Simulated scan of single mutants.
Amino acid sequence: MHKGSCLCGGVRFEVQGELPAPNACHCSMCRKHTGHYEAGTDVPRSAVTITGQDNLTWFRSSEKVKRGFCSICGSSLFFDPPALDWIGIMMGAFDTPTNTKLAYHIFVADKGDYYDITDGLPQNLQ
């Protein structure tokens, strides 16, 4: 089991089972939502338990996706495509150890101009 929370602890979550390898998304929406790029893992909805839902606010960033954050401290926590059977959870919100490593980068064509990606992992332009 893996546990995590927002900065203030107002929203907590648990994930049953191993965490799939995360990816890093450099699209402009993820960068604006997190303040940098987003690193997240996609887990089956059935494996996730969220507590403190009264403190969880959802922002619909597109027709296909909503993003969850703590309404108290503002921590970015979830990337949720409601039509699919998984939910993305931000890696920075997990308590360590996560026992996983970043697998690849996506939307690198949109990455910020203030950093370079030098970790040698695969990079997808979109």
Rank of each mutant, 00 (worst) to 15 (best):
P81Y: 15
P44Y: 09
S75I: 01
Y37D: 03
V11K: 12
Q53D: 01
H33V: 00
G10M: 00
L7A: 06
L121I: 06
C25P: 04
R45T: 11
P81A: 15
T96A: 04
F69H: 15
N55C: 03
P20S: 09
D95R: 02
S5V: 00
F69S: 15
I50Y: 06
M91V: 09
A83M: 13
G4E: 12
I89L: 07
L84A: 14
F59Y: 10
P44L: 15
E63G: 14
E18H: 15
R45N: 14
N23M: 14
I106K: 05
C27N: 05
T98F: 05
K3P: 00
S62Q: 12
V15P: 12
D80Y: 14
M1D: 13
G52I: 01
F13L: 08
G17P: 14
T51Q: 06
K3S: 13
F78S: 13
G52L: 01
S28F: 03
A109I: 02
H33A: 06
T118A: 12
P81N: 15
D85R: 10
L84M: 12
R45E: 14
D110I: 00
P81T: 15
K32I: 00
Q53N: 02
V108K: 01
Q16G: 10
C6Q: 11
W86V: 08
Q123G: 04
A24T: 14
P22S: 07
K66Y: 11
C73R: 04
L7M: 08
P44C: 09
P44R: 11
T57Q: 02
I106T: 11
P122K: 04
T41A: 13
H2V: 05
Q123W: 08
Y104V: 03
T49V: 11
G68C: 09
F59W: 06
W58S: 03
R45C: 13
S46L: 09
L102T: 01
C27G: 04
A109E: 05
A93M: 07
G9H: 05
G120K: 06
E63L: 07
D113F: 02
G35L: 08
L19W: 02
F13K: 08
T100H: 06
P122Y: 07
G120V: 07
E63P: 06
F78I: 13
